[in-house]
């Protein structure tokens, strides 16, 4: 059981888990809502890192699958009167399907082309969601999506989300640690070598893209019940770049990097907009600062700091 060793290897993670389990019991409701939101973005950041960190595919369109998962789940509940658990299954599946379809084109190219394409397809999804008023409600958003009575209280929904997010994270960690994950890393490092030893590069990339879309869909369908609805902005490039930044600022070459990044960015996003209206400007400055000081992310900075401390002690 490889994943059982993960918390032991990262004492920080174990402490975090304990905090996540106990804290909400003593926190006011606003903070619980914020924590649930953060958890969803943790999953988004970790799922996009399956592409960025493990596959070397920098996706700037991840919000599209988040939104597709959210809209599918929301529409099934409001239009078709489906129960929540079916919506929670169908949302991720729809997102995975969309990711498989879009991925079919995106994995044909690499590097800068991949960035441009994922961004372009992300904006396509945004435009469709925004313009297809009859189905999605357009600017007015899809509203009135409520979870069943049992999960109506914020704290109940928090624990419900926590369980699903943790299960998803463990699953993603298993995927990263599996032969599939290793193959993905081999493709990231030298695609030509991977191809020459008989790996079907395109198929592995597409599989990773679909999986990342699936997990983004889980976050999306949980979000729509949490937020009681969803708006086209959820698919906008701003959401995609924020998810990407969470992974990169936290450290794309660590499994826990995106988790740290998501918590960092969501905490800033909670505090800063209360002080200034210019949140994006502030975030831009933060990103520039990190790009100069620790371009490989905060987890790398943390590792470097630990190594330096160890040296000093010796």
């Amino acid at each position: 059981m490889n994943w059982l060793r993960l918390p032991a290897r990262h004492p920080l993670l174990l402490g975090l888990l304990a905090l996540l389990l106990i804290c909400p019991l003593f926190l006011p409701q606003t903070y619980v809502v914020q924590l649930t939101d953060t958890l969803l973005f943790v999953l988004l950041a970790v799922s996009v890192n399956l592409l960025i960190g493990y596959g070397g595919m920098i996706s700037l369109g991840h919000a599209a699958y988040f939104a597709i998962g959210g809209y599918t789940a929301g529409l099934l509940v409001t239009q078709a009167g489906m129960p929540m658990f079916i919506a929670l299954l169908a949302g991720p599946l729809a997102a995975a399907l969309a990711a498989a379809l879009i991925g079919l084109f995106c994995v044909r190219v690499a590097n800068a082309y991949f960035i441009m394409l994922t961004l372009a397809f992300g904006q396509l999804v945004y435009t469709v969601v925004w313009k297809w008023r009859a189905l999605t409600g357009g600017d007015d958003g899809l509203v009135g999506v409520a979870p069943p009575a049992m999960l109506l209280s914020e704290i109940h929904y928090y624990y419900f989300t926590l369980v699903i997010i943790l299960a998803s994270l463990i699953l993603i960690h298993r995927i990263c640690d599996s032969p599939f994950g290793t193959t993905l890393k081999a493709i990231r490092d030298t695609p030509s070598r991977a191809r020459s030893i008989g790996i079907d590069v395109g198929r592995f990339k597409l599989a990773a893209f679909t999986m990342a879309g699936f997990f983004a869909g889980i976050a999306g369908s949980l979000y729509v019940f949490h937020n009681r609805g969803i708006f086209p902005q959820s698919a906008l490039w701003v959401t995609s770049t924020e998810i990407m930044l969470m992974a990169v600022l936290g450290g794309a070459n660590h499994f826990v990097g995106p988790i740290v990044g998501a918590i960092f960015l969501k905490t800033l996003n909670f505090i800063i907009p209360r002080m200034t209206e210019f949140w994006m400007f502030f975030l831009g400055v933060v990103v520039l600062f990190i790009a100069f000081v620790m371009p490989r992310g905060m987890m790398d900075g943390y590792d470097g700091l630990r190594a330096r401390l160890k040296k000093i002690r010796e």
């Binding site: 770049t241 930044l245 994006m280 975030l283 831009g284 990103v287 520039l288 790009a291 371009p295």
Partner: peptide, 8 residues
């Protein structure tokens, strides 16, 4: 990173 920062 600097590109996204510039856009923001």
């Amino acid at each position: 990173m600097p590109m996204v920062a510039l856009i923001y």
